[in-house]
Simulated scan of single mutants.
Amino acid sequence: MKRNLFLAFVLVWGLLLSVGALAQGEAFAPIRNAIRGSSSQELAEYFAPTVELSFDGDKQSYSATQAEFVMKDFFAKNTPASFDFIHYGGSNEGTPYAVGKYAGKNSAYRMFVKMKSVGGAQKIGTIDFSKE
């Protein structure tokens, strides 16, 4: 009896964790689609008022409008051949993030996207590209 109760608990716990991961993945779906389509304009819809962009360790903060132009330039130079998020998570404070693999025509990158709360909504606060 105790064994069945333990197995039921483990099953329910596993289902709850998988539902949480799916929910995080769905929250990042429009961002994934904008990146796949190399649309800086669509991506900018999810930018916080200030966005930190990093390319191989060179970090700078930009306004949302400036960040859109920086991403437009990046997409023009590194058109994505493929892109997908491979991991979703959250900080201890509940800030969601995702890690992805971005394969451009000339280079492959590991991409980190971190959200931040802006007026009760989650917006992109950080995008970090690191060459693999």
Score class of each variant (00 low, 15 high):
G94K: 03
R110I: 12
L43R: 07
N33D: 15
L7S: 08
L22H: 01
P96W: 00
D84R: 15
N92R: 11
A76G: 07
S82T: 14
S39H: 03
A64H: 02
G125T: 11
A29N: 10
S82F: 05
K116I: 10
G104D: 04
F28Y: 02
A121C: 06
R32E: 07
P80S: 07
R32A: 12
A108W: 09
S38C: 04
A34P: 00
T126M: 13
G57R: 11
F47M: 07
A23S: 12
L7E: 07
K123Q: 12
K101N: 12
L16R: 07
F74N: 08
F55D: 02
N106G: 09
A64E: 02
T50R: 15
A27E: 10
L11Q: 10
F55R: 05
M71K: 07
M71A: 05
K101F: 06
T65P: 08
G20A: 04
E52R: 15
M111G: 09
A98H: 00
S40D: 10
I31M: 01
P80I: 10
H87A: 08
N106F: 15
F112Y: 14
F69Y: 09
G125Q: 03
M111T: 13
D56Q: 06
S18G: 02
L43H: 06
T95E: 02
A108C: 11
Y109Q: 06
A64L: 02
A8P: 12
D84H: 15
G25M: 06
M111A: 14
I86P: 00
L5P: 11
D128V: 11
S38F: 04
N78C: 01
D58G: 07
E26Q: 13
I35D: 04
N4M: 12
F69E: 09
K77H: 09
A8K: 12
D73G: 11
L43S: 02
Y62K: 03
S117W: 04
K114R: 14
Y46G: 03
V118Q: 11
F28H: 06
A21P: 08
A108P: 04
Q24K: 01
F85N: 01
D58T: 07
S54V: 05
E26R: 14
A121F: 09
D56W: 05
N78G: 05
D73V: 09
R32H: 05
M71R: 08
K105A: 10
S91M: 04
